[in-house]
Computed example of a mutant assay.
Amino acid sequence: MSEKQLHPSVQQFKDFVKTQPHLIQEVRRGDTTWQRLFEDWYLLGEEDTRFNSNPSAGKQEEASTDSSKSLWMSTVMNSLKNMDQNQVQGYIANISQALGTIQGVISQFSPSSGGSQNASTKATKQPTGPFSFRKD
């Protein structure tokens, strides 16, 4: 079988990763993905501090990531505090009505399922009482 030719940038990334074994370990630990590494490498370049073989640089990045997560979380919490609950409840009610209307339209245009027909045929096959008698 002939090997499929890789895009030149992908081949360059593979060569770069071979020189940076700590990146392979990051992916194996689940700290990042190959896609994420490739995007960072493509956008930031090989000289970025992200790709330093110094592990302390990674710890600094993790600390900045944690602080950005906590900043985002505090922003979300402040937004939740400032919301008018009655207004949010009104929005939810409007969305619920819209979804109900959409479901009604879809059910009108969908082909009738055999479920209702099967229920009526089952009712005629089953006896009405505890004993099965036939009329002569």
Results as ranks from 00 to 15, higher is better:
Ser2Pro: 15
Ser2Phe: 11
Glu3Tyr: 06
Glu3Pro: 07
Lys4Phe: 14
Pro8Leu: 03
Ser9Leu: 08
Ser9Ala: 09
Val10Ala: 10
Gln11Trp: 04
Phe13Glu: 09
Lys14Arg: 15
Asp15Ser: 13
Asp15Pro: 02
Asp15Asn: 15
Phe16His: 07
Val17Tyr: 09
Lys18Ser: 03
Lys18Ile: 01
Thr19Ser: 14
Thr19Trp: 01
Gln20Ile: 04
Gln20Val: 09
Gln20Cys: 13
Pro21Ser: 07
Pro21Met: 05
Pro21His: 07
His22Val: 05
His22Ser: 08
Gln25Pro: 00
Gln25Asn: 05
Glu26Trp: 08
Glu26Lys: 14
Gly30Trp: 03
Gly30Leu: 02
Asp31Cys: 02
Asp31Lys: 09
Thr33Ile: 10
Arg36Val: 03
Leu37Phe: 01
Leu37Ser: 03
Glu39Asp: 13
Asp40Lys: 11
Trp41Gly: 00
Trp41Phe: 09
Tyr42Phe: 11
Leu44Gln: 11
Gly45Ala: 09
Glu46Asp: 10
Glu47Ala: 08
Asp48Asn: 14
Asp48Phe: 01
Thr49Pro: 07
Thr49Glu: 13
Thr49Arg: 09
Phe51Cys: 05
Asn52Pro: 00
Asn52Gly: 00
Asn52Ala: 06
Asn52Thr: 02
Ser53Ile: 03
Asn54Thr: 08
Pro55Tyr: 04
Pro55Cys: 03
Pro55His: 04
Ser56His: 11
Ser56Tyr: 12
Gly58Gln: 07
Gly58Lys: 11
Ala63Leu: 15
Thr65Met: 04
Thr65Gly: 01
Thr65Asp: 02
Ser67Glu: 12
Ser67Arg: 10
Trp72Thr: 06
Met73Lys: 14
Ser74Leu: 06
Thr75Phe: 10
Ser79His: 12
Ser79Gln: 06
Leu80Gln: 08
Leu80Gly: 01
Asn82Leu: 12
Met83Gly: 02
Gln85Arg: 15
Gly90Lys: 09
Gly90Pro: 00
Ile92Val: 12
Ala93Ser: 11
Asn94His: 10
Gln97Trp: 01
Gln97Cys: 08
Ala98Asn: 06
Ala98Leu: 12
Gly100His: 08
Ile102Leu: 10
Gln103Thr: 06
Gly104Cys: 09
Val105Arg: 12
Val105Asn: 06
Ile106Glu: 13
Ser107Ala: 15
Ser107Trp: 03
Phe109Leu: 15
Phe109Asp: 13
Phe109Gln: 15
Gly115Val: 15
Ser116Ala: 06
Gln117Leu: 07
Gln117Asp: 10
Asn118Ala: 13
Asn118His: 11
Ala119Tyr: 02
Ala119Gly: 04
Ser120Thr: 06
Thr121Val: 04
Lys122Pro: 00
Ala123Lys: 07
Thr124Tyr: 01
Lys125Pro: 00
Gln126Gly: 01
Pro127Gly: 03
Gly129Met: 01
Gly129Asp: 10
Gly129Val: 02
Phe131Glu: 11
Phe133Leu: 05
Arg134Val: 07
